Simulated assay, not measured.
Amino acid sequence: MASRSRLPRTGEAHGRPRPGRTGPLAEPMTRTLVVTGAGGFVGAHLCRIAADAGFSVFAVGREAKRPDSLDGFVDEYVGVDLTEEWPSQVPTDADVVHLAGLAAVGGSFRDPQLYLSSNSAMVTHLCEALMRGSGGGRVVGVSSGAVYAAGPGDSFIDEASPVGFSSPYAVSKVLVENQLSYYRGRGLDTVVARPFNHSGPGQGVGFIIPDLIRRLAQTSADEVLTTGSLSTRRDYTDVRDVARAYLALITAPRLDHDVYNVASGTPRSGSEILAAVCAALGRPVPETRLDPGLLRPNDPASITGDAGRLREQTGWAPQVSFEQMIVESVSSVLA
């Protein structure tokens, strides 16, 4: 395998026993991990971290050709439309982290049925293939913290918090979770991860941190910056810590629950993000102007995710600080 140096480093009981492993990434191993959505933001980081942990990585992506971001981290790659089929060459006895899916909340309002149909079909094809095969290893299905029914005030959210249906995207994720529960009842070892906001090097446009970096890099220090609300607070975790959380769920000897939050437990306001980005760019914080058109109705003032269940069950904890995440995001965007 080539050198691994592209990305920055930093209910019921589930599954069979995992001999010789007492922590989330306790020791190297030779074991296959299938990663769907491998060419995406989180997928590329997960493939690298899994390869470094000793996994043989089988990557599944949309692109016909393996993306450059996966060079040196994957042993096999297949490009396929998972809404149409599950690739026959993927081993059915491997562990799977299912990241693939439509994930833009805004886009889900424009084409809601596409989100419902596509995200659901992928899970059906994956799980039916495992049912026809050996039954698979453990399947971590990645959902979202967006499925929770956060109120207009401050929200501290654990896995017992009520689920809401605030967008077609959230509806599609709840559907996927229910499918995974159905297949768990059929004998598959499935578990759901609900990540809250995450960012870091490699994140594309359409998200607050890389978008702020690009806009600030293109404006002068005395220019007024037009923004949405900077007072709302959200829980941000570095993408590499999120990837480690998924591996922690894959490798845990025992899981006592069906759903696990992935979150830092510390909310950050838009103003804090702006200040941190400006510090990383070495420039003063600009004057800002609120654009009412960028406001979201009934937007919760603050959302904090509780990942205590994940910490207690697997020993996972964030390793990358908020400040480091911002600095490396700036370096990535400006590279």
Score class of each variant (00 low, 15 high):
S3K: 08
S5W: 07
L7H: 15
L7T: 09
T10M: 09
G11F: 11
G11M: 10
E12M: 09
H14C: 12
H14Y: 03
R16H: 09
P17F: 08
P17R: 13
M29L: 14
M29R: 15
M29D: 01
T30R: 14
V34W: 10
G37Y: 05
G37S: 06
A38K: 06
I49N: 00
A51G: 15
F55L: 07
S56R: 14
V57R: 09
A59S: 10
A64F: 00
A64T: 14
K65W: 00
S69D: 04
D71T: 14
G72S: 12
V74L: 09
D75M: 04
D75C: 03
V78E: 01
V80W: 00
D81C: 05
P87C: 04
Q89E: 15
T92G: 05
D93R: 04
D95G: 05
V96P: 07
V97Y: 04
H98K: 09
L99C: 01
G101N: 07
A103E: 02
V105G: 02
G106Q: 05
Y115V: 00
L116M: 02
S117F: 07
A121I: 08
M122W: 02
C127T: 14
E128R: 13
V142D: 05
A149Q: 14
A150S: 14
F156C: 08
A160D: 15
P162C: 08
G164W: 11
F165N: 10
F165M: 06
S166L: 12
K173H: 03
V174G: 00
L175F: 10
L175Q: 11
L180R: 10
S181F: 06
S181H: 12
S181C: 02
Y182N: 04
Y183P: 06
R184G: 13
D189L: 01
V191I: 14
V191M: 09
V192G: 04
A193Q: 03
A193D: 01
G202E: 00
Q203S: 02
P210H: 10
D211G: 11
D211F: 12
L212W: 03
I213K: 09
L216A: 12
L216G: 10
A217E: 13
A217H: 15
A217R: 13
Q218Y: 01
A221N: 13
R233L: 03
R234D: 04
Y236F: 15
D238P: 01
V239I: 14
D241M: 00
V242T: 05
A245F: 00
Y246M: 15
L247H: 11
I250F: 08
P253M: 11
V259A: 08
P267N: 10
A275C: 02
C278F: 06
L281W: 04
L281G: 03
R283K: 11
V285P: 01
V285K: 08
P286Y: 04
T288F: 03
T288S: 05
T288K: 04
L290D: 06
D291W: 09
G293S: 11
L294T: 04
L295T: 01
A307F: 05
G308N: 14
E312W: 04
Q313R: 15
W316G: 04
A317F: 06
A317P: 00
V320R: 11
I326N: 11
V330K: 05
S332H: 12
S332V: 08
V333E: 13
L334N: 04
A335T: 13
